[in-house]
Amino acid sequence: MAGTVAIISYRSGNVRSVVNALRQLNVGCTVTAERTVLERASRIILPGVGEARSAMEALEQASLVDWIRETRIPFLGICLGMQVLFERSEERSTTGLGLIPGTMARFESDGTLKIPHMGWNTIQHDASSPLFNGISPDEYFYFVHSYRAPLTDQTIGRTDYGVTFSSAVSIRNFYGVQFHPEKSGSAGLRLLRNFIERC
């Protein structure tokens, strides 16, 4: 399929890390919030740093909310970009895209659990998902987040941190990962390549 990988731009810094990771895979990409550009893309990535409410507001301002819900283009949400795939987030009582049922809840500290969940952790992943093709279950990925996704029928990766939460999800053409593949060494690059070539 013709077209390029489009990265939806926010007013936040970490878009650049995704661009750099794709460049290392020799994958060209364009950073945009223009619907006409997104419509021609072969893959769409929604990166995310910041918080849920301002992320949703940015998508609303770009008139992308309804468009994203209906697109059939393979779509990957990273970190906050995964969180907004859900119905709701407790973070400033935000309504998400609603593609996956459930609410993002804040990690609760028991006095020893550090928040944010920051660092390298493993994923018990669904080996049949093309996203995890060739990736060992012993592999580590880099996380940094304070809100966690519930386990649902759409869960394809589970991670333990105080509780077990969804670290990867998929529904139809939509994929979401709570960790940062663009910051997770060669395992992360492998996952991004899987998304571009296999999803």
Binding site: W120, G134, A187, L189, R190
Partner: peptide
């Protein structure tokens, strides 16, 4: 975290 297992 041990050295990565994944290869491209």
């Amino acid at each position: 975290r041990p050295a990565s297992f994944s290869t491209l």
